[in-house]
Structures are given as C-alpha cells and as structure tokens.
Design a protein around this nucleic acid. Sequence first.
DNA 1: TATTTAATTCAGTTTATACTAAACGTATTC
DNA 2: GAATACGTTTAGTATAAACTGAATTAAATA
Lengths: 179, 179
Amino acid sequence: MNTTLSHARQNFIQGMSRISHFWGFPRAMGAIFGAIYLSPEALSLDELVEQAAVSKGAISTNVRQLERLGMVHKHIRIGDRKDYYTAETDFWKIIKGILREREKNEFNAALRTVDESLALSQSENSTPEEAELAAFYKTRLEAMQRFFHNLDNLVATVMALDELRQTTIQRLFSNTSDQ
Amino acid sequence: MNTTLSHARQNFIQGMSRISHFWGFPRAMGAIFGAIYLSPEALSLDELVEQAAVSKGAISTNVRQLERLGMVHKHIRIGDRKDYYTAETDFWKIIKGILREREKNEFNAALRTVDESLALSQSENSTPEEAELAAFYKTRLEAMQRFFHNLDNLVATVMALDELRQTTIQRLFSNTSDQ
DNA sequence: TATTTAATTCAGTTTATACTAAACGTATTC
DNA sequence: GAATACGTTTAGTATAAACTGAATTAAATA
C-alpha cells in the first residue's frame, strides 16, 4: 500500500485509540475500531493483529466488546473458519448502543445510591438539630434525584428522536446532509 | 452526629466516589464533592480531610479541579486564613462546566486528527487502486467529521437551551418541578 | 482419529494514575 | 523576627487495568 495512505490510516488509528482511552475504554478498543472503520473489506482477527498492532488476545477481547456496543458487526463466511468484522457507520446508533450498554447499569447504580442515602437519612430524627440536618439532606438528595431523572429523560428523548432520524434529528442539528 | 445520618452521608460519599471514577475522574474528587454537597456549612480543607477521608494533598489537588469545573465554589472569610468550599447545586451548570472544560479540548483534538488523516490520504494517488482506496477513506472520514460537527451542535444546543432554563428545558424533559 | 487452524482464556508483566506523607513556601500573629 | 497555621508541591508507593504471549479449547478437514 501507498505509504501516504498507510500513514493516514496509522494516524487515524492512533487518534481513535486516544479518544477511546479518553472516554474510559481501552486504547486497543479504539485502535481496533479505527482499523475496521478504515477498511473497505471485512477484516479477520489476524488482519487486525497487524493493522491495529495489538496482540491476538487483546483483539479477541476488545472486538467482542465492540460488538456488544454495536460498533462492529461479525460476519461468518461458509467454508471459512475465520470471523470477519465490519464497522457500524451510523454513529447515532453507536451512541445509542454505548448509552444502553454502558450508562444504564452505572446510571441506575448511582440513582440507587442516592435513594439509599435518602432513605437512611430519613429513618430517624431524635434531636431537633438532627431533624434539621436530615431535612437538609432531604432537599439536597431529592434535588439530585430530580436531576438524574431529568437527565435520563433527556437521554431517552434523544434516543427516541433517533428512531425518526433522517427526517428529524439530523435536520435539526446539522446544516449538511448526513450519511 | 447521629450515626444514622453519618451512615447516610458516608454511603452517599462512597457513591459519588464511584460515579466519579466511572466517569474517568479521580475517586477522591467525587468523595470530596459528595462531602461538600451534603454539608449545610462551607467546609474547610481540614474538615474535608476527615469527612471525605482523603489526604490533605489530594484534597488540595482535587478541590482545585472541582473549582475549575464549576462544581464547587471557594469562599474566603476576612480574618480567617482557611479556604471554605460550597457546592454548586445547579447540575445543568455543572454539566456545562464539565463539557466546556473537559470535552472541548479532547473533542477538538479528535476533530483535528480526522482532519489530518483526511488531508494526508488525499495528498497523492499514484495508481488507480490507491486512488480508489483514497476515495473510500474520504467518504469514511468525512462521515465522521459530519458526525462530530452534529454532535457539537447538539451539545451547543442543549447548552444554549440551558440558558433559558426554568422556562424551557426542565419543563420539556421533566414532569416534576425542579430546584 | 490425527492434524490443522482458528478463537479464547489465563498467568504474568507492564503501565498509568491516584494517593499518601512529608517537606516546603507563605502569610499572619505574637 | 520567631512561631504558627495554612495551602501546595513533590517524591515515593500502591493499585488497578490493560496488554502480551503462551496454553488451551473448539471446530473442521484429511
């Protein structure tokens, strides 16, 4: 391959690796996605080993995670034992997948923690001073609860809007045509 | 203090610590914010040391970061050398601060990487095969550019809507009254 | 059934990062 | 101007996460 094109690819893969790390995902995950995204053909695990410069073990682990997030798709070919991967090119779908898989769990855990703390703080109030503090906790914790619910609704709304995309959301937030 | 209230506070602080870590911030940062958020009074650095159970050095570092993100506010009292901290209670403001401080840098870096890779890949195309591949890179990289710009617009829009909040956004995405 | 070829798992290593504790700098008070 | 009371910086340490390389499992073909 042309060294300039290969350089462009390496630069891109490195950038994806960096973004991935920034968002709290493994570096290799971004590198793998970058390699798949810039390939006209579906890539096998072994091809990924050389293109993304990551060990086989790491590819195996991370490509599965990428699939769970809906960022890549696995293809099997009859009479061929290798798995081949292509990239999801609809980024809104990707965002949706990430939010669903990743946030939902931790997000609900956060909500539960606030609920718990609130319940705990309201259980008893022996002295007036304690009752006052408990009341303060109540206002603060409830405010946070409301925020989390609002945020949840916002995310749900954006995700729902995505259902009608191509007609709505991309026209709303862009002035160029998408895809 | 009542042991139940103290237990509620510790539970909350632990939860904030966890969320903080999940979002790629230091655990101590969340713990410190949690302690400040649940305090009716502004807290000094030394008070934070015991409430958040984190060393003085870590408090010093993380509380500064919290201030940069607009999550806490520093207060000085005349005739008192200590710094006191209170929590920002407007979470939309906090989100704004985080997006501004944290994403903008890394987000633009990501955009630049894509720009770079695109420029590189389009510089020369000696053979027909290379030209074809370069064309493929172009479509893929441009699609990603568009997505990033749309995302940027979406974020900018949500942030702009926040300016008119209390009248608009919270009524849109909630069925309870906020603040 | 043995051999080849693939993906997965796992033990060990590396690396990055956050944290602690102590030293330091700085300003106020006696 | 010495002592005190802060916040900050830094050197060292601990820890967790990710990655590598090798062993293992699984599947297909001979």
